[in-house]
Simulated assay, not measured.
Amino acid sequence: MPDSTPTWRKADDDIVHGRQRLIFVRDGSWQLTALAYFADGQVTWQYGPPSDLAGLRQALADGTLALAPPDGTVVHVPGAGRFTMTADGAPWTAPMVLGDIADEVDGLNQRPDSSRRAYDAFRAYADDPSEERLETARSAYLAVPRHRRIYMLGDMDHNDVPARILLAGIGEEIPARRPGTTLTVTAEAKDGALDYFLRITPAVSAWERRHTADGPDTPTAAAVVIGGHVHPQGWPDPPGLDVLQNDYPASVVHRGREYRTVTHAYWALSTGDPAWHDRIADADRGFDAVEVAFAAPRRDGWAAARLAVMGTLLRDKCRRHPLIAATLLSTGDARVLYSDTGSCYWTRDGREGSNWMGRLLEVVRSELAAGRGGILS
């Protein structure tokens, strides 16, 4: 079955990250479609209402969805035509895919997946080899999708053999690491398996300390969306995260000239013509400033300089308006997704968006945090 790929959806003012993979759906006839699942547990597919993992399990059980329709079935592929299904002996089963998806949802939430939970359970059993902890380890091991168990320990020299030795009875024969071979579980083998987990525990702990010494690799807070709101009747009170929009009425100053908003300043500075500059700066609203600026000539080298200009203006905005700076800091380490400019360069409203505005806000937020902590003056 093809690997999953990233996806996302908007939920209120947030972005919910997810993954998607191909699946077959039956709605009178069979069709190849995308199965999407998200960090909040929502699962979606064509022709069906939003569901969850339990709903996906039921849809696979009742034939609404299939990993492979019956041999000889004509399948429609939107935009590509039709093909006739032929049996290929693919080893994928519904429990395998459901297990994979549950693990991926764990990953989207930066929490341990089934393999890591089983791994930790065996390490806990090695520290205190009680029957209760062994049963906990057994349950955790059986919860790992079968095709992923050999990778559970992250050790391809041993696969999951040490775990299976501990779960087996003395005298029992179990598959060995080499295909087609077996080993007989002895008391010595069990002692060796226990020693394996005792030896790797400090090594793994040391690696984890080194790996996270510089902080988490991914944000711990949910992504936040800035922009995408129009307020023709005036800004909300309190404005919340809307204060981080570029057209929010918070003045900035550049080279002694005060501008009503970041939007006014950015677009006024985009032209080298003094008359156009003043017309843009004097516009009533940010929207009007943009409309005027579209007709103005751009200054030479603007495309190469605009990122630095925007960064300078955002820093000035936060420096002059402490409450805005506090609002930005309140987002923690969340990914900032900006969706207000209609430009793929600045925004993240589509897969092609570069989200430079959001990235600059994250940089300014980091500078504010460093200043607050006395790291940078």
Rank of each mutant, 00 (worst) to 15 (best):
F294H: 15
D120I: 03
W8D: 08
G228N: 09
A308Q: 11
R178N: 12
R365P: 04
G72L: 08
V43Y: 02
V75G: 04
Q46N: 11
R365H: 11
W30I: 09
V224S: 05
T327H: 01
E104I: 05
E131H: 14
L53T: 02
W235D: 12
Q110T: 12
G240N: 04
L269Q: 14
V224M: 04
L134G: 06
Y266V: 08
R335A: 09
Y47H: 13
R320V: 04
G28A: 07
D71C: 02
A283Y: 06
P179W: 04
F83N: 05
M152R: 11
L269W: 00
T271V: 07
A68I: 04
L134S: 10
G234C: 09
V185W: 02
R209E: 10
L56I: 03
W302I: 06
S115I: 01
L313M: 08
A303E: 15
R315P: 05
V97W: 09
D14F: 01
A187S: 14
H76M: 10
I375W: 12
D103A: 06
D27P: 00
A39C: 04
Y338T: 00
E104W: 05
D237N: 12
A54F: 03
Y248I: 06
L241I: 08
D62Y: 01
L32C: 08
P95A: 12
R133W: 04
L329M: 10
D273C: 07
R298G: 10
G272R: 09
W346K: 04
R146D: 15
L65Y: 02
R82S: 14
V144S: 09
P274L: 11
Y119K: 05
Q31G: 08
P112W: 05
D14I: 00
R149E: 11
V204S: 02
Y151H: 15
I150P: 11
P129F: 12
L60W: 05
E352D: 15
D191E: 15
H76T: 14
F122V: 05
A303Q: 14
M357H: 14
L166W: 13
T33Q: 06
P175V: 08
D247W: 08
S115G: 11
K10M: 14
D282I: 01
P112F: 04
R257N: 14
A68S: 12
T181C: 10
R146Q: 15
G180I: 04
L314F: 10
D282F: 00
D340Q: 13
A325P: 01
L60F: 12
I280T: 07
T84E: 13
A296D: 13
Y248D: 03
D300F: 12
R260C: 09
R315A: 09
I200S: 02
H229G: 11
A36W: 06
P95H: 09
Q31L: 13
L35M: 02
V292R: 14
R111K: 13
